[in-house]
Lab assay of single mutants.
Amino acid sequence: NKFNKEQQWATYEILNLPNLNEEQRKAFIDSLKDDPSQSANLLAEAKKLNDAQA
């Protein structure tokens, strides 16, 4: 299913963002699990935070 693929991709991407700390990473991944339909939005937020902390 589409959300499952998006969720897996977003999880992979978030795990590989270098500037997030473990707590932030875990929070994003927990949110992905809670609502896979928000995968794209959550990934965008994670990338923004990652860039802000660069």
Results as ranks from 00 to 15, higher is better:
residue 1 N to M: 03
residue 1 N to R: 03
residue 1 N to Y: 01
residue 1 N to Q: 05
residue 1 N to E: 10
residue 1 N to V: 03
residue 1 N to K: 04
residue 1 N to S: 02
residue 1 N to W: 00
residue 2 K to R: 07
residue 2 K to Y: 08
residue 2 K to D: 15
residue 2 K to Q: 15
residue 2 K to G: 15
residue 2 K to M: 15
residue 2 K to N: 15
residue 2 K to V: 09
residue 2 K to A: 15
residue 2 K to F: 11
residue 2 K to E: 15
residue 2 K to L: 08
residue 3 F to V: 15
residue 3 F to P: 15
residue 3 F to L: 15
residue 3 F to H: 15
residue 3 F to A: 14
residue 3 F to N: 15
residue 3 F to D: 15
residue 3 F to Y: 09
residue 4 N to M: 06
residue 4 N to H: 13
residue 4 N to T: 12
residue 4 N to I: 08
residue 4 N to V: 07
residue 4 N to R: 03
residue 4 N to F: 13
residue 4 N to P: 14
residue 4 N to E: 15
residue 4 N to L: 12
residue 5 K to V: 05
residue 5 K to A: 12
residue 5 K to P: 15
residue 5 K to D: 15
residue 5 K to Q: 13
residue 5 K to N: 12
residue 5 K to T: 14
residue 5 K to R: 03
residue 5 K to I: 04
residue 6 E to R: 02
residue 6 E to A: 06
residue 6 E to W: 11
residue 6 E to T: 04
residue 6 E to N: 04
residue 6 E to P: 03
residue 6 E to F: 14
residue 6 E to S: 04
residue 7 Q to P: 03
residue 7 Q to N: 03
residue 7 Q to L: 15
residue 7 Q to E: 13
residue 7 Q to Y: 14
residue 7 Q to R: 03
residue 7 Q to H: 05
residue 8 Q to H: 04
residue 8 Q to M: 12
residue 8 Q to R: 09
residue 8 Q to S: 04
residue 8 Q to Y: 08
residue 8 Q to A: 08
residue 8 Q to K: 09
residue 8 Q to V: 09
residue 8 Q to F: 08
residue 8 Q to G: 04
residue 8 Q to E: 13
residue 9 W to G: 03
residue 9 W to M: 14
residue 9 W to A: 14
residue 9 W to R: 11
residue 9 W to T: 05
residue 9 W to V: 10
residue 9 W to P: 02
residue 9 W to F: 12
residue 10 A to G: 02
residue 10 A to M: 04
residue 10 A to D: 02
residue 10 A to N: 03
residue 10 A to E: 02
residue 10 A to I: 07
residue 10 A to S: 03
residue 10 A to R: 03
residue 10 A to Y: 11
residue 11 T to E: 12
residue 11 T to D: 02
residue 11 T to V: 09
residue 11 T to G: 03
residue 11 T to K: 08
residue 11 T to H: 14
residue 11 T to Q: 14
residue 12 Y to D: 08
residue 12 Y to W: 13
residue 12 Y to G: 06
residue 12 Y to M: 08
residue 12 Y to R: 06
residue 12 Y to V: 04
residue 12 Y to A: 07
residue 12 Y to I: 06
residue 12 Y to F: 13
residue 13 E to L: 13
residue 13 E to V: 15
residue 13 E to K: 12
residue 13 E to N: 08
residue 13 E to W: 15
residue 13 E to Y: 13
residue 13 E to M: 15
residue 13 E to P: 01
residue 14 I to N: 01
residue 14 I to V: 05
residue 14 I to L: 05
residue 14 I to A: 01
residue 14 I to W: 02
residue 14 I to H: 01
residue 14 I to T: 01
residue 14 I to M: 04
residue 14 I to K: 00
residue 14 I to G: 01
residue 14 I to S: 01
residue 15 L to F: 05
residue 15 L to M: 13
residue 15 L to Y: 09
residue 15 L to H: 06
residue 15 L to V: 05
residue 16 N to D: 04
residue 16 N to A: 10
residue 16 N to H: 10
residue 16 N to R: 13
residue 16 N to M: 07
residue 16 N to I: 07
residue 16 N to T: 07
residue 16 N to V: 05
residue 16 N to Y: 04
residue 17 L to I: 01
residue 17 L to G: 00
residue 17 L to F: 05
residue 17 L to Y: 04
residue 17 L to P: 00
residue 17 L to S: 01
residue 17 L to N: 01
residue 17 L to M: 14
residue 17 L to E: 00
residue 17 L to A: 01
residue 17 L to W: 01
residue 18 P to V: 07
residue 18 P to A: 08
residue 18 P to L: 04
residue 18 P to E: 07
residue 18 P to Y: 08
residue 18 P to T: 07
residue 18 P to W: 05
residue 18 P to Q: 09
residue 18 P to G: 06
residue 18 P to D: 04
residue 18 P to R: 10
residue 18 P to K: 09
residue 19 N to S: 07
residue 19 N to K: 04
residue 19 N to E: 04
residue 19 N to Y: 14
residue 19 N to G: 04
residue 19 N to V: 02
residue 19 N to Q: 04
residue 19 N to A: 09
residue 19 N to H: 12
residue 19 N to M: 08
residue 19 N to L: 05
residue 20 L to N: 00
residue 20 L to M: 02
residue 20 L to Q: 00
residue 20 L to A: 00
residue 20 L to K: 00
residue 20 L to S: 00
residue 20 L to H: 00
residue 20 L to Y: 00
residue 20 L to I: 08
residue 20 L to T: 00
residue 20 L to R: 00
residue 21 N to F: 10
residue 21 N to S: 13
residue 21 N to Q: 11
residue 21 N to M: 06
residue 21 N to W: 09
residue 21 N to R: 12
residue 21 N to T: 13
residue 21 N to I: 06
residue 22 E to H: 10
residue 22 E to N: 11
residue 22 E to W: 15
residue 22 E to V: 08
residue 22 E to I: 09
residue 22 E to A: 08
residue 22 E to D: 12
residue 22 E to K: 12
residue 22 E to F: 12
residue 23 E to L: 11
residue 23 E to W: 14
residue 23 E to R: 13
residue 23 E to T: 09
residue 23 E to G: 08
residue 23 E to V: 13
residue 23 E to Y: 14
residue 23 E to S: 11
residue 23 E to M: 14
residue 23 E to K: 12
residue 23 E to Q: 13
residue 24 Q to E: 03
residue 24 Q to G: 01
residue 24 Q to K: 02
residue 24 Q to L: 03
residue 24 Q to H: 02
residue 24 Q to P: 00
residue 24 Q to T: 04
residue 24 Q to Y: 02
residue 25 R to I: 05
residue 25 R to G: 02
residue 25 R to A: 06
residue 25 R to Q: 07
residue 25 R to S: 04
residue 25 R to P: 00
residue 25 R to E: 01
residue 26 K to T: 10
residue 26 K to R: 09
residue 26 K to H: 09
residue 26 K to Y: 09
residue 26 K to E: 06
residue 26 K to S: 11
residue 26 K to M: 13
residue 26 K to D: 05
residue 26 K to P: 00
residue 26 K to A: 10
residue 27 A to W: 15
residue 27 A to H: 10
residue 27 A to N: 10
residue 27 A to E: 07
residue 27 A to G: 09
residue 27 A to Q: 11
residue 27 A to I: 12
residue 27 A to V: 10
residue 27 A to P: 02
residue 27 A to S: 09
residue 28 F to G: 00
residue 28 F to S: 01
residue 28 F to V: 02
residue 28 F to A: 02
residue 28 F to T: 01
residue 28 F to R: 00
residue 28 F to Q: 00
residue 28 F to M: 04
residue 28 F to Y: 08
residue 28 F to K: 00
residue 28 F to W: 02
residue 29 I to Q: 04
residue 29 I to W: 04
residue 29 I to H: 03
residue 29 I to L: 09
residue 29 I to V: 06
residue 29 I to R: 03
residue 29 I to A: 03
residue 29 I to G: 02
residue 29 I to Y: 03
residue 30 D to E: 11
residue 30 D to W: 11
residue 30 D to A: 13
residue 30 D to P: 00
residue 30 D to N: 14
residue 30 D to V: 14
residue 30 D to Y: 12
residue 31 S to Y: 07
residue 31 S to D: 07
residue 31 S to A: 11
residue 31 S to Q: 13
residue 31 S to N: 10
residue 31 S to K: 14
residue 32 L to Y: 02
residue 32 L to H: 01
residue 32 L to M: 06
residue 32 L to R: 00
residue 32 L to I: 13
residue 32 L to P: 00
residue 32 L to W: 02
residue 32 L to S: 02
residue 32 L to F: 03
residue 32 L to A: 04
residue 32 L to G: 01
residue 33 K to R: 12
residue 33 K to D: 08
residue 33 K to M: 14
residue 33 K to T: 13
residue 33 K to V: 15
residue 33 K to G: 09
residue 33 K to W: 12
residue 33 K to L: 09
residue 34 D to M: 13
residue 34 D to H: 10
residue 34 D to A: 12
residue 34 D to E: 13
residue 34 D to G: 09
residue 34 D to N: 11
residue 34 D to W: 12
residue 34 D to T: 11
residue 35 D to I: 05
residue 35 D to L: 06
residue 35 D to Y: 10
residue 35 D to V: 06
residue 35 D to P: 01
residue 35 D to H: 12
residue 36 P to D: 03
residue 36 P to W: 06
residue 36 P to H: 03
residue 36 P to T: 03
residue 36 P to Y: 03
residue 36 P to I: 04
residue 36 P to N: 03
residue 36 P to A: 07
residue 36 P to G: 06
residue 36 P to E: 03
residue 37 S to Q: 09
residue 37 S to V: 05
residue 37 S to I: 06
residue 37 S to N: 08
residue 37 S to W: 06
residue 37 S to E: 11
residue 37 S to K: 08
residue 37 S to F: 07
residue 37 S to Y: 06
residue 38 Q to K: 08
residue 38 Q to S: 08
residue 38 Q to W: 04
residue 38 Q to N: 05
residue 38 Q to R: 10
residue 38 Q to P: 01
residue 38 Q to M: 12
residue 38 Q to L: 09
residue 38 Q to E: 07
residue 39 S to N: 05
residue 39 S to F: 15
residue 39 S to G: 05
residue 39 S to E: 03
residue 39 S to A: 13
residue 39 S to R: 05
residue 39 S to V: 12
residue 39 S to H: 15
residue 39 S to M: 08
residue 39 S to Q: 04
residue 40 A to N: 07
residue 40 A to Q: 09
residue 40 A to V: 12
residue 40 A to L: 14
residue 40 A to Y: 14
residue 40 A to T: 09
residue 40 A to S: 10
residue 41 N to V: 09
residue 41 N to F: 15
residue 41 N to G: 08
residue 41 N to S: 13
residue 41 N to R: 15
residue 41 N to A: 11
residue 41 N to W: 15
residue 41 N to L: 07
residue 41 N to Q: 10
residue 42 L to I: 13
residue 42 L to T: 10
residue 42 L to V: 14
residue 42 L to R: 07
residue 42 L to G: 01
residue 42 L to A: 07
residue 42 L to M: 12
residue 43 L to R: 04
residue 43 L to D: 00
residue 43 L to T: 04
residue 43 L to W: 07
residue 43 L to F: 08
residue 43 L to P: 00
residue 43 L to Y: 09
residue 43 L to N: 01
residue 43 L to M: 07
residue 43 L to V: 13
residue 43 L to S: 03
residue 43 L to A: 09
residue 43 L to H: 03
residue 43 L to Q: 03
residue 44 A to T: 08
residue 44 A to D: 08
residue 44 A to V: 10
residue 44 A to R: 10
residue 44 A to M: 13
residue 44 A to P: 01
residue 44 A to Q: 08
residue 45 E to W: 14
residue 45 E to I: 14
residue 45 E to Y: 13
residue 45 E to N: 08
residue 45 E to F: 13
residue 45 E to M: 14
residue 45 E to D: 05
residue 45 E to L: 12
residue 45 E to K: 14
residue 46 A to P: 00
residue 46 A to F: 02
residue 46 A to G: 01
residue 46 A to H: 00
residue 46 A to E: 00
residue 46 A to R: 00
residue 47 K to V: 11
residue 47 K to G: 03
residue 47 K to P: 00
residue 47 K to H: 06
residue 47 K to I: 11
residue 47 K to W: 14
residue 47 K to L: 09
residue 47 K to E: 04
residue 48 K to T: 09
residue 48 K to P: 00
residue 48 K to L: 12
residue 48 K to Y: 09
residue 48 K to D: 06
residue 48 K to A: 05
residue 48 K to G: 05
residue 49 L to G: 01
residue 49 L to A: 05
residue 49 L to E: 03
residue 49 L to M: 10
residue 49 L to Q: 06
residue 49 L to H: 03
residue 49 L to V: 09
residue 49 L to R: 04
residue 49 L to D: 02
residue 49 L to P: 00
residue 50 N to W: 01
residue 50 N to R: 01
residue 50 N to Y: 01
residue 50 N to E: 02
residue 50 N to G: 02
residue 50 N to H: 02
residue 50 N to I: 01
residue 50 N to Q: 02
residue 50 N to A: 04
residue 50 N to P: 01
residue 51 D to A: 14
residue 51 D to M: 11
residue 51 D to K: 11
residue 51 D to N: 10
residue 51 D to H: 10
residue 51 D to L: 14
residue 51 D to W: 14
residue 51 D to Q: 12
residue 51 D to F: 14
residue 51 D to V: 11
residue 51 D to I: 10
residue 52 A to D: 06
residue 52 A to M: 11
residue 52 A to P: 02
residue 52 A to R: 10
residue 52 A to F: 10
residue 52 A to I: 11
residue 52 A to E: 12
residue 52 A to L: 12
residue 53 Q to T: 06
residue 53 Q to V: 09
residue 53 Q to L: 06
residue 53 Q to E: 04
residue 53 Q to N: 08
residue 53 Q to I: 11
residue 53 Q to S: 06
residue 53 Q to W: 07
residue 53 Q to P: 04
residue 53 Q to G: 06
residue 53 Q to D: 03
residue 54 A to T: 10
residue 54 A to V: 08
residue 54 A to H: 10
residue 54 A to F: 09
residue 54 A to D: 07
residue 54 A to K: 05
residue 54 A to S: 11
residue 54 A to Q: 10
residue 54 A to E: 10
residue 54 A to M: 09
